[in-house]
Design a protein around this nucleic acid. Sequence first.
DNA 1: ATGAAAGCGCTAACAG
DNA 2: CTGTTAGCGCTTTCAT
Lengths: 343, 343
Amino acid sequence: MTLDDVAAQAGVSAKTVSRVVNGERSVRPDTRQRVLRAIEQLDYRPNLLARGLSGSHAYTIGLVYDNPNAYYIIAMQQGALTACDALNFGLQMRPCDSTVPGLAEDLRDFVHRSRLSGLVLTTPVSERQATLRKLAAYRIPFVRIVSAAKSPHDGIPCVYVDDRDAAYAITAHLLQLGHVRIGFLRGGKQHHASAERLQGYQDALRHYGVTLRKELMIEGDYVFDDGFRGARRLFELAEPPTAIFGCNDEIAAGALAAAQSTGLHVPYDVSIAGFEDSPFSRHSWPPLTTARQRADVIVERATRMLIARIRGEHVDNESFNPELVVRGSTAPPRPKSRRRKRG
Amino acid sequence: MTLDDVAAQAGVSAKTVSRVVNGERSVRPDTRQRVLRAIEQLDYRPNLLARGLSGSHAYTIGLVYDNPNAYYIIAMQQGALTACDALNFGLQMRPCDSTVPGLAEDLRDFVHRSRLSGLVLTTPVSERQATLRKLAAYRIPFVRIVSAAKSPHDGIPCVYVDDRDAAYAITAHLLQLGHVRIGFLRGGKQHHASAERLQGYQDALRHYGVTLRKELMIEGDYVFDDGFRGARRLFELAEPPTAIFGCNDEIAAGALAAAQSTGLHVPYDVSIAGFEDSPFSRHSWPPLTTARQRADVIVERATRMLIARIRGEHVDNESFNPELVVRGSTAPPRPKSRRRKRG
DNA sequence: ATGAAAGCGCTAACAG
DNA sequence: CTGTTAGCGCTTTCAT
């Protein structure tokens, strides 16, 4: 079933059928109807390979990620697949290392080789300004997912996730339980979300009139071991925190393991909260209080935006707000620590 | 960078370059070398769209999976990508539900629509005999990954993983530590690996002269909650086991959580072992003794086999043996005397 | 063992 | 508005 078959059936040229299929407006309504009917009768479906080879792009997008978190990746892929299936686009997965020097060139080659229509950039690739600039200079259409409290005004379409607000909510939850000394285990610096979450933590403390303490904020990366080590350091302080907020669930899981390895009971001796609502947070004991971040929804939206953009439609930035999920790993501090604070 | 460029560089015709790229044997070794050098010098990559349009198939394979385990999926994708990149094939991911009635037809449509060259079937899809038969009848080339102690002789190429042997090794490890009452938390019945692992467990017990006890083998699925519930049931027995072998790491993580929620100390009160060597097993406290199963390696091999088969080469089945990894979650059982003293 | 010619199904660039 | 003519980069088929 080819364009020519449809053309013959409709009594027009192949090019006209092509125009109808691609939604071009320079076709008379009655001609269009005739072609549409022929397409339906013959159950014609365009050959993506031929379209891609001949046209300026392959009707396929690339999903670019550099994220050590398996759950996150699966969720993102799921979202991208959903959108691509619905809109008749192909999808290529592209794991990468966001820190290599030639990343923009690699992605350019990737796009050119497969004649990709565009890219969905996820964090932290989406936060490397130099890479974004180069990609834009290469005229590669892309949409990115970023961590930001409000819509960026740089003209590049994005879905922005308000990590700051969600981190504020988690910290406020701990403060409302009565915690005052709250440790913060930071995530990797190449993720802007880390800074946003730290900001949310600090904003909450300030609003509740609690002094920020440097020794309670520990640097680290989004890995279990840094959560473990960071928590151990916090426990060894002269005045250890009664609650710990890990920058994501994996860090929090590391903190949980550290508590257990130290003989501390969670949540009675120490409360622990994470971020992300990954299966990690449910598959620990006790399950972790966290912020629900629907990576599948976020990426599906970004993918739809990208395809709309490729089709020349106007697109507006979209926002996503993670939602607080309270589970068993957080509870009020033990009275002892409160007394200590007062005395 | 096209075939013609390479042909010019190597001083041969485009067709010869094509032959080399596709691994055809009718090329003289020295000619092949010359072409290979030209390809490297020019960093030539064949255009998959053109190949697909021109050839009888799209030089792209599909990776089919129905597995709830994110780590497993990522590892499999990684392996498939590695092989496809090396052999200049495209890759399409295909998550599915292995229990739906029309699966074979869905996959056939998937293959035809994208003119896929073949499929890599992973468990448990690869174990649905009716689906396999239909796929074969549709003349769709595929390679499957199965759980088996020895090479199947059904003429369908496969990579077979000896789960039984690895489960035997884990059980033997526990027996050698001195455990006699060893609980087994089974995985989902639609996975043949579950039966193989149970078999390995039973073989080891028999081999060591330990009586099998029904109440120590608990049914369940490959999910955290079943590990949790199953372990709780074991702890409630009049004579609870001193060690638990979970059919995979997620089940074992559930068992670990159950132990902790019951106030049992791992490994002093109870040893726990898993299977898979997923990050789960490292990100718990204590880290889990397990069997290392390199899903990436397994799938990469399967993918290479599939492509070889598509190219008309002869392929033999390959085997993979998971390897025992001992970590902190297993230790000798507590001597009765000491237990009394502490209790 | 290698090459020449003929498309694969579609769209871009031009006609009219 | 619609049609014609050229390819896209590769594999097929058939020569040699």
